[in-house]
Design a protein around this nucleic acid. Structure first.
Lengths: 144, 144
DNA sequence: CCTTGTTAGTTACAAAAACAACTAATACGT
DNA sequence: ACGTATTAGTTGTTTTTGTAACTAACAAGG
C-alpha cells in the first residue's frame, strides 16, 4: 500500500481540528438552535451585539471575520425573530446600527451563561496550564 | 450592556476551534481542490483507501465518522475522476470494495506528501511538547 | 455639479451539506 | 420457505453556504 512512518489522519492537524470543532460546535448548537431556532452565524451576531453593544453589520463582520452576506442574512433572520432592530445612521444612510430588543437581550443573557458553562465543561478535562496552552495554540493557528 | 468578567468569543473554545479549523482547512484545500478538483470528503475517502488499503464505503464511514450519503457521493465523484473502482463483494452483493486506480494512487501519494508537509508547517510554530499536547487535547475533544 | 470610484448592504444564482425516503440484498425467526 | 427486520448504498428534496452581481449612498477630483 505504502510503506512506512506512522502519519495517519488522526495525526493530521487539520483533521483533528475539524473533528474537535465539529464535536464542540454540535454540542453547543442545541442551545441556540433547539432553544431559539438560530443558526451559528445568528448566534455570533447576537453575541457580538450583546457583548460589545450596538454596532453596524460591517463592524460585526470585521470583528468576527465573517462575510457580509452571511451577516446580512443573519441580521435579517434575527430581525424577523424580533431579536434586534435596525436604525439607519443619519450621517451615512447606507449603514444601520443594530440594537438588541428586550427579547434579543434576554436570549443573549441566557446563551451567554450557557456558553460560559459549556466552555467550562469542555475545559474541565484539562489542567489550567494545559487549557490555557490549548487556547493559545488555537488562537495562533486561527491568526495564520 | 452587561457587567463583568472577561469572557468573550476569543476565549470561547468552540469558536476558537471553528476559527482554527477553518483556517487550517482552507490552507490545505488548495492542494486537493485546485490540483485535483476534489471536495474535502473526496480527499478523506482517497486518504483512507491510500493509507489503509481497499475497503467498503461502510468501512470508510465508520473510520472517518462521516455520514454514508457524503461517502456515497464522494465515491461516485472519485469514480468519475477514475481515481477508484468499485468491485461488488460476491459474498454480499450490497457491498462494494473500493480500490484506487493507478491515478488514484498517484494522487494519494502526492497529497499524502503534501499533507505531511502542511502538517509540519502548521506545527512549526510550536515546540515539540506543545504540539504533542495540542494534538492530545484535540483528540480528547473530538472523542467526546 | 458631474463623472468616477468606493462602500454598506442586499439579492440572485450556483455549489454543497443535511435530512429523509428509497432500493436491493442479506439475516433471522418461525 | 416465508414474512419481517436490517443493512449497504443511492437518490431526491430541502437548507445552508459561497460567489457574483446589484442597488443605494457617499467621497473625491475636476
Amino acid at each position: 500500500m505504502h510503506n512506512d512512518d506512522s502519519f495517519d489522519l488522526q495525526g493530521f492537524l487539520p483533521y483533528l481540528l475539524a473533528q474537535a470543532a465539529e464535536t464542540a460546535s454540535a454540542g453547543f448548537q442545541r442551545h441556540y438552535k433547539d432553544r431559539y431556532g438560530m443558526l451559528r452565524t445568528e448566534w455570533r451576531v447576537l453575541f457580538h451585539l450583546g457583548r460589545y453593544g450596538p454596532m453596524t453589520a460591517k463592524d460585526i463582520g470585521a470583528r468576527a471575520r465573517v462575510h457580509k452576506t452571511k451577516i446580512s442574512r443573519a441580521v435579517a433572520a434575527l430581525e424577523t425573530k424580533r431579536f434586534l432592530t435596525r436604525n439607519v445612521v443619519t450621517r451615512d444612510r447606507r449603514q444601520a446600527k443594530l440594537d438588541l430588543t428586550k427579547n434579543g437581550q434576554a436570549a443573549f443573557d441566557d446563551l451567554y451563561k450557557a456558553a460560559q458553562a459549556f466552555d467550562a465543561q469542555l475545559m474541565a478535562g484539562f489542567s489550567r496550564q494545559e487549557g490555557a496552552a490549548l487556547k493559545r495554540c488555537l488562537a495562533a493557528l486561527a491568526a495564520q
